Simulated assay, not measured.
Amino acid sequence: MENTHDFNGFKSGFVALVGAPNAGKSTLMNKLLGEKLSITSRKPQTTRHRILGVVHREDMQLVFVDTPGVHKSNRALNVRMVDVALTALGDVDVVVFMTDVHESDDESDAYLMGQLKKVNRPVILALNKVDRIKKPEVLAHIEKWRGIHDFHSIIPLSAKHGDQVDSLLSEISKIMPEGPPFYPEDVITDLPERFFVAEMVREKIFRLTGQEIPYSTAVTVDTFTREKKLVHVEATIHVERDSQKGIIIGKKGTKLKAIGEEARKAMEEMVGKKVFLKLFVRVEKNWSTDTKAIRRLGI
């Protein structure tokens, strides 16, 4: 049967969120969706994967792609993360380039700007964290960036508080093509629950351990079983050295217990059921410098 649905005036398309580590991309994604999808922490390079989030509005559907922070590095894991981010640039209709005006990462911003100049896509500059600086400083940042690139528009905003996020959506809609929605109205991502379960464990590691540990850990889900009133999850935390395993477990298992309790609460909120979570810790020597190990761990 011929589809006679009239999509005249309805807009849809893909938007890449790119920027240096800790620019606020994941916070913006969560604010746009109205619920938590991307994990966040105060530590840079929290996001390792391309995470898709669908924003539904009456007159448009925007499919946002949250990407890992773009930065220069020779470490295999970091190179993989940057490749994931840059690959997204060629597959979208609009690019939103986010920069932190409070604590700028000039080197990473300059590197990413060089990559953006190679991509024939409209770019909107989002000046994030303007709530942490004074208005004259905001104006100075706008003038500086105007001299660097011919952006479609420059939007000062606060992803954390939601200030000017609607203005960003408005600017995106101006350049988004007309077309039918890509996803049903009840879909906000294309990723399975198992992915988010692993991410929730990893987020708690980022938040509950010191500077070195989070970057040396990966999480895989061994078992994810839904029962009538319970979800059963078994997951493995992979570390690179025996000393890191000891830190993750903690004295008498206290650290691992805390990670598990916090992750379990987040999982229960997501699945709407009680969760039985069992965590294991495994040493996989120098996995973050081994390309094959990185792929095997799903990164």
Rank of each mutant, 00 (worst) to 15 (best):
residue 195 F to L: 05
residue 134 K to Q: 15
residue 104 S to T: 15
residue 268 E to H: 10
residue 14 F to N: 10
residue 282 R to S: 12
residue 199 E to L: 00
residue 189 T to F: 01
residue 258 A to S: 09
residue 108 S to E: 03
residue 280 F to W: 11
residue 60 M to D: 11
residue 35 E to R: 02
residue 101 V to H: 03
residue 214 P to N: 06
residue 68 P to V: 08
residue 61 Q to N: 11
residue 39 I to F: 01
residue 162 G to N: 09
residue 169 L to C: 12
residue 143 E to L: 05
residue 111 Y to W: 13
residue 191 L to F: 07
residue 140 A to P: 11
residue 109 D to N: 15
residue 136 P to E: 02
residue 179 G to V: 05
residue 127 L to R: 05
residue 298 G to S: 03
residue 145 W to G: 05
residue 219 V to Y: 00
residue 189 T to A: 06
residue 3 N to I: 13
residue 267 M to F: 10
residue 109 D to G: 10
residue 102 H to D: 13
residue 4 T to D: 07
residue 63 V to E: 02
residue 193 E to R: 09
residue 45 Q to M: 12
residue 3 N to D: 15
residue 88 A to P: 11
residue 120 N to T: 14
residue 29 M to S: 13
residue 14 F to R: 11
residue 30 N to E: 09
residue 76 A to T: 14
residue 204 K to L: 09
residue 41 S to P: 13
residue 175 I to K: 07
residue 292 K to D: 15
residue 101 V to P: 02
residue 199 E to S: 05
residue 284 E to G: 03
residue 141 H to A: 07
residue 283 V to Q: 01
residue 222 D to A: 05
residue 164 Q to S: 14
residue 186 D to N: 12
residue 112 L to C: 08
residue 200 M to A: 10
residue 150 D to W: 00
residue 60 M to Y: 09
residue 59 D to T: 13
residue 153 S to V: 14
